[in-house]
Amino acid sequence: MRRAGPVWSDGRMDTLPDLSESVRARLAEEWNAWLCTVRPDGSAHVTPVWFVYEDGTWWVGTDASAVKVRNLRGEPRVSLALENGTHPVVAEGTASLTGDFPPPVVAAFAAKYDWDVTAPTRPGVGRVLLRVPVRRWLLAGTAQ
């Protein structure tokens, strides 16, 4: 079973797979994902991040001055992967940055990590959210 995904600016609609209960549970329970962004020189920048996943979208909180944020300003396409390589869960999407923190997302980070995603981690450095709607999944070795 597939469900409708985002509608692209050119009017076409992508489709995304319905995720299995085990994948949904991992997205809800696992603490870390690997976020891959692209540096200005074209090389990959991979970093572990805390995340929440809701309705086809990954949310990642970070300092506004982070390398990943600078990379996204030049190239917004990203990949996110859960840590278990035996049963891969990899998502591709286009990230957007926002200084707005939707209350349900803030609550989800608090529930999952006992952490205020809006709170600065360094003096004088603001926080932002990366919003990554899934464009494509790689699940158990199959691109979908």
Score class of each variant (00 low, 15 high):
Phe101Gly: 00
Pro40Trp: 02
Glu30Ala: 09
Thr47Leu: 14
Leu97Lys: 06
Pro102Trp: 07
Arg26Lys: 12
Ala91Pro: 03
Leu138Asp: 00
Gly141Ser: 13
Phe101Pro: 00
Gly93Tyr: 09
Ala28Lys: 09
Gly42His: 05
Thr15Val: 13
Asp18Trp: 00
Phe109Val: 05
Glu30Met: 06
Thr118Ser: 02
Glu30Ser: 08
Ala95Trp: 09
Met13Arg: 15
Arg2Ile: 04
Val49Trp: 03
Arg77Leu: 08
Thr118Tyr: 04
Ser65Met: 08
Gly99Lys: 10
Leu16Gln: 12
Trp31Met: 06
Thr121Arg: 15
Ala44Asp: 06
Arg3Thr: 08
Val52Leu: 04
Arg135Glu: 13
Trp50Met: 05
Arg3Leu: 01
Gly93Arg: 11
Val90Leu: 14
Asp63Leu: 11
Val117Thr: 10
Thr98Asn: 03
Asp63Ser: 14
Ala111Pro: 01
Ala119Lys: 15
Val117Arg: 02
Gly126Cys: 00
Leu72Cys: 07
Glu75Asp: 14
Pro103Gln: 14
Ser79Thr: 12
Pro88Ala: 07
Arg131Cys: 11
Asn32Ile: 14
Gly42Val: 11
Thr57His: 12
Arg77Gly: 02
Phe109Gln: 10
Glu54Thr: 01
Trp58Thr: 00
Arg77His: 15
Pro120Glu: 11
Gly61Arg: 00
Leu19Asn: 04
Leu27Gln: 12
Pro104Tyr: 01
Ala107Glu: 15
Thr15Trp: 09
Phe51Met: 09
Lys68Ser: 06
Asp18Gln: 13
Ala25Met: 01
Leu27Ala: 11
Glu30Thr: 02
Ala143Thr: 13
Thr86Trp: 03
Glu92Leu: 14
Ala25Glu: 13
Arg24Trp: 01
Pro103Leu: 11
Val60Asn: 03
Tyr113Thr: 05
Thr62Gln: 05
Pro103Asp: 15
Gln144Gly: 12
His87Asn: 11
Val105Cys: 02
Tyr113Gln: 10
Thr57Ala: 11
Gly56Asn: 11
Ser96Phe: 05
Ala119Trp: 07
Ser9Thr: 13
Trp8Lys: 14
Arg131Met: 08
Val128Ile: 12
Pro6Glu: 14
Ala110Met: 13
Val78Thr: 07
Glu92Tyr: 11
Val69Met: 02
Pro40Glu: 07
Ala44Thr: 02
Val125Ile: 15
Trp58Ile: 03
Val38Asn: 03
Pro103His: 10
Ala95Asp: 10
Trp8Ala: 04
Glu29Gly: 03
